[in-house]
Amino acid sequence: MEVRIEEKKRKERREKALFGQWWRIFKANRVAYVSLYILIGITLISLFADFIAPYSPYEFDIRRAREPPSLEHPFGLDEIGRDLLSRVIHGGRYSIGIAYAAVFLGASIGVILGLISGYYGGIIDDIIQRFTDAMLSLPTILLAIALVTVLGVGVTSLIIAVGLSTVPIYIRLTRGLVLQVRNMDYVLAAKILGKRDTYIIFRHILPNIASPIIVQSTYYLGLTILIASGLGFLGLGVPPPTPEWGAMIGRGREFLISSPHIVAFPGIFILITALCFNLIGDGLRDALDPKMAKYIRRGRI
């Protein structure tokens, strides 16, 4: 007997959104949901900084240096008389952009190495793990400082330094997850069908470990903003006069007592952004964990 599927049904079903219920659960977490909007707002503002910022972030007027906030300059002026609001808006581009790029870099390298390490095991696993041990023996920030010292100062080297410093954490995380999934029967079933390792890794293993990695990445976005800012504060970040939040705090710290606004505004933005990433991470963690979904009381959603 020949089975044919109705054409209409076929279309309908194919178009059925793969969007699960996770979005509903995520939305139910008000804090995470609001954080997401704040973050999208900050990201959009930094992206369109050229149109939004009232002044140039580089033009200065040394005579009006350290002027406190006023109607004309809502955030005040910095240590050499640049408009702080404009600098904060432009700075988001660097701080958030560096975080995204660094996490993307770190995750790509770390996840691939973790997949190889966990899936194949044996001597490859040993080598990768000893390498990870060595890197993990240094705190992330020290690792980043060491790398930036080697690579020199600049946006690219900052991204590479911060990105590479998260690689060992990603390797550990991914490897652990792979070890759980590797022995599932569906992986074995794919092998029995004659599927190749690369197919199994990307089709069966990666999708099943993606959620925790995405969640962790959200946390790391918050963390990398802090690390990048920390490096900027130490003068190891982007070189002046680039308006990066950490660097802004670093240079404003001499005037902390007399003109606290120079440090406060970039500081608040670092705090808000890092916090948003963490809260979104919490929301995603709950939403992407199907077991959580089951036990949420109806009243809350």
């Binding site: 074995l188 079933a189 029995i192 069908l193 999708p207 099943n208």
Partner: peptide
């Protein structure tokens, strides 16, 4: 390899939870 197949005890772990039935059968 194709001539020898296995049916596992626990169907919860033998089907990839992130794949639709169509894709599970499709890959075979």
């Amino acid at each position: 390899r194709h001539k020898i197949q296995v049916i596992f005890q626990n169907p919860d772990s033998s089907l990839n939870p992130r794949m639709r039935i169509l894709d599970i059968l499709g890959e075979a």
